[in-house]
Amino acid sequence: MSQKEDLSLFVREALLAGRPRPEIAEVLVVAGWSQGEVDEALSAWAETPFAVPVPRPRTVVSARDFFVYALTFVALGIAAFHVVWLGFLVVEMLWPDSDGANYWQAREARNSIAAILVAAPLYAWLTVRERRRLAADPGLYRSAIRKWTTYVTLLIAALVFVIDLIVALASFLNGELTGVFVAKVVIVAVVSGVLFAFYLRDTDRG
């Protein structure tokens, strides 16, 4: 049995024995547990009066969640990166003073199209499927892996957006801002901004 399990069992038995929470907290702190560990252990049990301690729902970690959310995360990353990259290539090609594409750019563009055509539907399918499961069982919102991937996605989207603005502003101040550059900055800002807004809504559910 792990130390956390020992602590949880002790708290449960102390509550079952009718000991008040401050007293349980005090003996645990004296025994060497940190205040944070004690608070966490106590908060695992609801203060609802009942014959036995009532457990609160906990975050869950499952191998299935890891598979689904990691795959969704990677599919989103691939699709987003290639949408931006393809956007860059299209802008370079279509800009009025462009010399036109070369073989390398055309090949890169088709590689990006292939990546989007595979990754984007995969992401959409996984996301819709998972949202249906969450709607059917809101308890699944407690998935720790779901929360982690949501916040990691938010972090990456926010960083990309901020760096994009910094680079744009630096280029402007250095007098290097061109039409092509502005178009690329807008593409990055739109993609990262939409992703950030989409995942920000997810944090409402914890």
């Binding site: 290639h82 949408v83 393809l86 956007g87 290539l89 299209v90 090609m93 279509l94 594409a101 750019q105 055309a106 563009a109 088709r110 990006s112 199209i113 989007i116 055509l117």
Partner: peptide, 11 residues
């Protein structure tokens, strides 16, 4: 993105 890419660079 895909539509524009295919239109600009060809299939």
């Amino acid at each position: 993105a895909v539509g524009t890419g295919l239109f600009v660079f060809g299939g």
